[in-house]
């Protein structure tokens, strides 16, 4: 089994028996799609909620929820997945720092990322079957194409599978 590593604002799709992972999600969100019959799994590491935040026309589509999620779907379809069978899982979207009352939009970026990813999935009619989001801690996630299981690891916490 090989593991494909996805960095910030990057995506990857894997076939059985491989896995795709991203390390140290904070306010970023790892969105995964999975086709159980074909055993195809995909992941994108979303950093910001909306392309409306992009300064300039030339931007990395994998960075923003509203472009990253539809692009991941297309990547999955090109790899042989059937959109009607896809299910999604989400992890991340933490608030890493507590800055008291100064909760401007920058500090709520984790929650905004989660909401935007959910909205993007809803527009594509892809159901969310599991999530581990919010809180104030970093997460490493790995999606196994054989099972569709998403493993979530955090410092000082028990490893979970969702």
């Amino acid at each position: 089994m090989a593991t494909i590593r996805v960095g910030i604002a990057e995506s990857g799709v894997v076939l059985n028996p491989n896995s795709v992972s991203t390390l140290g999600l904070g306010s970023c969100v790892g969105v995964t799609l999975y086709d159980e019959r074909r055993k195809i799994g995909g992941m994108v590491h979303v950093m910001l909620p909306s392309t409306e935040l992009a300064k300039g026309a030339d931007f990395n589509r994998s960075k923003f929820a509203d472009s990253a999620v539809p692009d991941l779907l297309q990547q999955m379809i090109r790899s042989g997945a059937d959109q009607r069978r896809l299910v999604a899982k989400l992890a991340g979207g933490a608030q890493m720092f507590n800055l008291g009352g100064e909760a401007d939009s920058l500090l709520k970026i984790g929650a905004r990322n989660v909401a935007a990813c959910k909205q993007a999935l809803a527009l594509l009619r892809i159901p969310i079957v599991a999530e581990d989001t919010g809180g104030s801690w970093g997460r490493t996630v790995e999606l196994f194409s054989e099972s569709g299981i998403l493993e979530v690891r955090a410092i000082g916490k028990t490893k979970t599978q969702i």
């Binding site: 910030i8 390390l23 140290g24 999600l25 904070g26 306010s27 970023c28 950093m47 910001l48 933490a94 890493m96 720092f97 507590n98 800055l99 008291g100 920058l106 970026i109 984790g110 104030s136 801690w137 970093g138 997460r139 490493t140 410092i155």
Partner: peptide, 16 residues
């Protein structure tokens, strides 16, 4: 504000 956590999580937030 203080955080003790994974470098990726801390840096990516700081770079948003």
């Amino acid at each position: 504000s203080l955080a003790m956590d994974m470098a990726g999580a801390i840096l990516a937030f700081s770079l948003s």
